[in-house]
Amino acid sequence: MKKGYIYTIIFMAVVSIVFTGLLAGVNAAYKKKIAFNQEAVLKSSILLSVGVESGDDVNAVFAEKAQENKLGDTTYYSIETDSGTAFAIPFEGPGLWGTIRGYIGVASDLQSIQGIAFTEQNETPGLGGRIEEDWFKNQFMDLSLETVITYSGDSGLDAITGATSTSNAVLKIINEFISTTLKELEEAR
């Protein structure tokens, strides 16, 4: 149908205002709930990096077991586990497509890795994205830090088929974490 310019402009403005208003309303209504969910996910990741299952009430478990510490600008957590205190320390580094962030659990003597949890990654879903799967993360449990970590038969670590770049990136991030962040923590103590 043919309509004038003025009508077209007014129509577009009205439609835009109505739908943007609708979105703003929905966003405001759910903002708190989404923030709450994200915090719960973060807390359960921190706990999982040292092998603590958080169960249903993440906030209570976290409040009970975790304690905040500072190392320079980074915040890390000391967490009570069944086998003594362990540290959950944040790490970040370049993946294939974007920054990979997460927490590495380290035993209190700083001699072994207890586990790893990813909080942010933009790797290819179904390929590099599989670093989030349990079988991959569980490989990093109880890993001795005496030697540089590699994918090999000796270390028992498997890379992900079809995601060589992401697998290597993760390894590089972890080794860099060991040689920098962990060193700093050792010196600070």
């Binding site: 439609v15 759910y30 709930k33």
Partner: peptide, 16 residues
């Protein structure tokens, strides 16, 4: 515009 508005609503709803 209309499609995008509904998609974002679905996205927010699933996230929440």
């Amino acid at each position: 515009l209309v499609i995008a508005a509904y998609v974002i609503i679905v996205d927010i709803f699933i996230k929440a």
